[in-house]
């Protein structure tokens, strides 16, 4: 008995540094940001007098911030859908005993090794309307595929999505492939013995088993996309008429160029709120299932 409680004490003691660190670096700093967001600190000199919700209200009225929210939602949805779709497709194809699987896998996965900044700069070249893929399309007779890409406000955001999908879809491919390989053979055999077609096996046996994988991928990709900064900053900046602007970029410019620290903090808090909307149900779910048996 004594032995066990001593071990337990050790366990708690060893966990403590992490808890303290996260307490300061995450919750302490969020608290600081929340406090600043309610202050009048909109010049370079700190002014922490209470301003109520002034900064939040100013944001809600701002044309740029409205565009940011719209862009973030569009970006997150299309980025998630495309990454999951392509990842699943590639995983299923790779699962068909293809020759050179390892080579394909490495090719699909390597963009993850590259920083968002390099990705952004490279895709900025590739999607430049007067050169890049447009030039390529011309040369191979696919001229009808040409587009103004990120210089066209109505589709600019999708150009950024394309770059993000390039970078992250290999990751969903890997997750799904791992998931597919984890499906017990007996289950598939049983389904086939029952006369299911290959399509039905995928649709009714394998896909449902991949739900946890999808959930993890949504969480990982979702939070990346809600707070995306480097990629947009390096690739398009705000874009024409803020068509690729996101809260991360707005926050950075407002705070560090415009010296409006309180407004910047308010943007951060709203970003945090968006992420929380995605994450908290997931954390809650994790907690509930943990608390069970």
């Amino acid at each position: 008995m004594l032995r066990i409680s001593l071990d337990r004490l050790i366990a708690i003691a060893l966990l403590l540094p992490s808890l303290v660190a996260v307490g300061i670096f995450v919750y302490g700093f969020i608290g600081w940001t929340a406090y600043v967001s309610l202050s009048n600190w909109n010049t370079f000199v700190p002014d922490l007098s209470f301003a109520g919700l002034t900064n939040y209200l100013a944001l809600m009225r701002s044309f740029r911030f409205q565009a940011d929210l719209r862009n973030t939602l569009i970006f997150t949805f299309t980025f998630l859908a495309a990454s999951l779709g392509i990842g699943l497709l590639l995983a299923v194809l790779l699962d068909q005993r293809v020759r050179g699987e390892a080579v394909f896998r490495n090719i699909f996965l390597f963009p993850m090794a590259i920083s968002f900044i390099v990705t952004g700069v490279t895709w900025q070249w590739l999607l430049n309307p007067s050169t890049g893929v447009n030039l390529l399309f011309d040369q191979v007779g696919l001229g009808f595929l040409k587009s103004r890409w990120y210089t066209d406000p109505s589709i600019a955001i999708f150009s950024v999505v394309l770059a993000a999908v390039w970078q992250m879809s290999g990751f969903t491919m890997a997750m799904y492939l791992a998931g597919l390989r984890g499906v017990p053979d007996e289950l598939l055999e049983a389904a086939r013995v029952d006369g299911a077609t290959e399509w039905q096996v995928y649709r009714y046996v394998i896909l449902p088993l991949l739900h946890p994988v999808t959930l993890s991928a949504v969480i990982v990709l979702g939070h990346i996309s809600l707070k995306i900064f480097d990629l947009v900053y390096a690739m398009t900046g705000s874009g024409p008429a803020f068509s690729t602007d996101v809260p991360g970029v707005f926050m950075f410019e407002t705070t560090f160029r415009g010296n409006r620290f309180a407004e910047g903090a308010a943007i951060s808090m709203i970003m945090l709120l968006l992420v929380a909307i995605l994450i908290v149900p997931y954390l809650w779910y994790t907690m509930r299932t943990e608390a069970g048996p």
Partner: peptide, 19 residues
């Protein structure tokens, strides 16, 4: 002009270029 204005000036003209 102060940087606060300079930042907004850029933003406003960015919108103007399109609209």
């Amino acid at each position: 002009a102060p940087e606060t204005f300079a930042t907004e000036f850029n933003d406003i003209l960015n919108v103007f270029v399109t609209r």
